[in-house]
């Protein structure tokens, strides 16, 4: 465990909690892509099946359970409790265009052709693109609430910090996982445009709105 890994995990946790609290406090999921949240719930479910097969540490187990629990709680709030506020018309990204290719790729390119390993690989590939329905929704409506941008920033920062973690682990532990690294780079790159808008607009006190 190095500082990049720990801050990455905490940034990820912060993103998840920010989103849950935003929805809970405002009693509304306006501007949030339910499709992205379903994809994240699917990501955690397929990745953390090793909870049943191997114990790594108390930290590891607790974080996995928190991530999964929060992901399903978020989906529940969007599609059940505050369904009336869900902006389904703007959440029109076709998720099958992500899930099907990602499923095919995880069967083709993986470390080991076993069910758990393929599901883990699927979760890594899917996570890298799971935010696209949310970014698509923002590009469609042309704006995002400031709290939503904080959520996206923490979520993007998490994978960027993991990149530094992998550089660290490569130099000091000789550890690298090519599947995670390539997917992590793709994931981080998808946030670059948003990072730019976040720094140039949101951090200067302006609302994030895209030019028409």
């Amino acid at each position: 465990m190095n500082i990049f890994r720990l801050t990455g995990d905490l940034s990820h946790l912060a993103a998840i909690i920010i989103l849950l609290l935003k929805i809970w406090k405002s009693r509304s999921c306006a501007g949030i892509s339910g499709k992205s949240q379903i994809l994240f719930a699917l990501v955690f479910t397929t990745r953390y099946l090793d909870l049943f097969t191997s114990f790594i540490s108390l930290y590891n187990t607790c974080m996995k359970l928190i991530y999964i629990g929060c992901a399903y709680a978020t989906v529940y709030l969007i599609y059940a409790k505050f369904r009336a506020t869900y902006d389904g018309n703007h959440d029109s990204f076709r998720v099958e265009f992500l899930v099907v290719p990602v499923g095919g790729l995880s069967v083709l390119i993986n470390h080991d052709f076993s069910p758990l390993e393929i599901l883990w690989t699927f979760s890594i590939y899917l996570e890298s693109v799971a935010i696209l329905p949310q970014l698509f929704m923002i590009s469609k409506t042309g704006e995002a609430e400031t709290i939503t941008t904080h959520y996206l920033f923490c979520l993007g920062l998490y994978r960027a910090l993991y990149l530094f973690n992998w550089i660290w682990r490569f130099y000091f532990e000789g550890f690298f996982d090519m599947i995670a690294i390539v997917a992590g780079v793709v994931q981080t790159v998808l946030y670059c445009d948003f990072f730019y808008l976040y720094v140039t607009k949101v951090l200067k006190g302006k609302k994030l709105s895209l030019p028409a």
Binding site: I56, N60, K64, Y67, H111, D112, D177, A180
Partner: peptide, 10 residues
Amino acid sequence: DNNGKPKDEL
């Protein structure tokens, strides 16, 4: 490569 080792990252 970490093939075969338990995955310790989240």
